[in-house]
Simulated assay, not measured.
Amino acid sequence: MNVIRTAGLTRRFGGVTALEGLTLDLPRAGVIGLVGPNGSGKSTLIRILLGLVAPTSGSAEVLNEPISAPGRYLNRVGALVENPAFVPGLSARVNLMSLARLRGLPASRVEEVLQIVGLTGRDTEPVKRFSLGMKQRLGIAAALLPDPDLLILDEPTNGLDPSGIVEIRGLLADLARAGRTVIVSSHLLAEIETVCDFLVVIRFGHLVYSGPVTDLLARTEKRIEISAEHERDTSSLLALLSADGWQVEHTPEGRLSVIADERSGAELNRCAARGGITLTSMTPVRGSLEEIFLHMTGSSDQDLTADRAAAAERKAS
Rank of each mutant, 00 (worst) to 15 (best):
Pro146Leu: 02
Gly30Pro: 08
Pro106Gly: 05
Lys135Arg: 15
Arg109Gln: 02
Ile140Pro: 15
Arg93His: 06
Arg109Leu: 00
Asp147Gly: 06
Val81Asn: 10
Pro148Val: 09
Met97Ser: 05
Ser91His: 02
Leu96Asn: 00
Gly33Thr: 12
Leu90Trp: 04
Leu151Val: 08
Gly41Phe: 01
Ala107Met: 03
Arg109Asp: 01
Glu112Gln: 09
Gly118Ile: 07
Pro156Trp: 04
Pro37Ile: 05
Ala107His: 05
Arg169Asn: 13
Gly51Met: 08
Val77Tyr: 08
Glu82Lys: 08
Gly89Phe: 11
Thr56Asp: 10
Ser43Phe: 00
Leu151Ala: 03
Arg169Ile: 10
Leu151His: 03
Leu99Phe: 03
Gly33Leu: 06
Leu63Trp: 10
Thr44Arg: 07
Ala29Leu: 10
Gly104Asn: 01
Leu102Thr: 01
Glu155Tyr: 09
Arg103Ala: 12
Arg76Val: 07
Glu125Asn: 07
Gly118Arg: 01
Ser163Phe: 06
Gly118Ala: 06
Arg76Gly: 07
Ile67Asn: 04
Leu52Asp: 12
Pro162Gly: 01
Thr124Arg: 15
Ala69Thr: 09
Leu144His: 11
Leu102Gly: 10
Thr124Trp: 08
Asn38Val: 02
Gly164Asp: 10
Gly41Val: 13
Ile116Ala: 13
Asp149Trp: 03
Glu125Ala: 14
Val77Cys: 08
Glu65Phe: 11
Thr56Ser: 15
Ser98Trp: 10
Leu132Asn: 05
Asn95Gln: 02
Ala143Cys: 06
Arg72Lys: 14
Ala79Tyr: 01
Leu114Pro: 02
Leu26Phe: 08
Leu52Ala: 15
Asp154Gln: 10
Ser91Tyr: 00
Gly36Met: 13
Asp154Arg: 12
Gly164Lys: 11
Met134Tyr: 07
Glu61Trp: 06
Thr157Met: 07
Leu132Cys: 09
Gly33Pro: 07
Val35Gly: 06
Leu52Phe: 10
Gln136Cys: 13
Leu96Arg: 00
Arg109Met: 00
Lys128Tyr: 12
Ser59Glu: 13
Glu155Met: 09
Leu160Trp: 03
Asp161Tyr: 04
Leu90Gln: 12
Asn158Val: 09
Ala142Ile: 01
Ala142Pro: 15
Val166Gln: 14
Ser108Pro: 03
Ala29His: 14
Ser91Ala: 03
Arg76Thr: 07
Leu45His: 10
Leu52Met: 14
Leu90Arg: 11
Asp123His: 13
Leu49Phe: 02
Thr157Ala: 13
Thr23Pro: 02
Gly33Lys: 05
Gly104Arg: 03
Leu151Met: 01
Pro156Tyr: 06
Val77Ala: 09
Glu167Asp: 15
Leu80Asp: 13
Thr23Gln: 03
Asp123Phe: 05
Gly71Tyr: 06
Leu119Asp: 00
Pro106Arg: 01
Gly164Tyr: 06
Val81Phe: 04
Val62Ile: 10
Ser163Thr: 11
Thr157Asp: 10
Gly39Met: 07
Thr157Glu: 04
Glu112Asp: 15
Gly58Asn: 09
Ile165Thr: 12
Pro148Ala: 04
Gly78Thr: 04
Pro162Met: 08
Lys42Thr: 12
Ala92Tyr: 08
Asp147Trp: 01
Glu112Cys: 01
Leu80Met: 15
Val117Cys: 15
Pro37Asn: 08
Val81Glu: 08
Leu151Ser: 04
Thr120Tyr: 02
Leu151Trp: 02
Glu61Ser: 03
Arg129Trp: 02
Leu26Ile: 15
Pro84Asp: 01
Ala69Val: 11
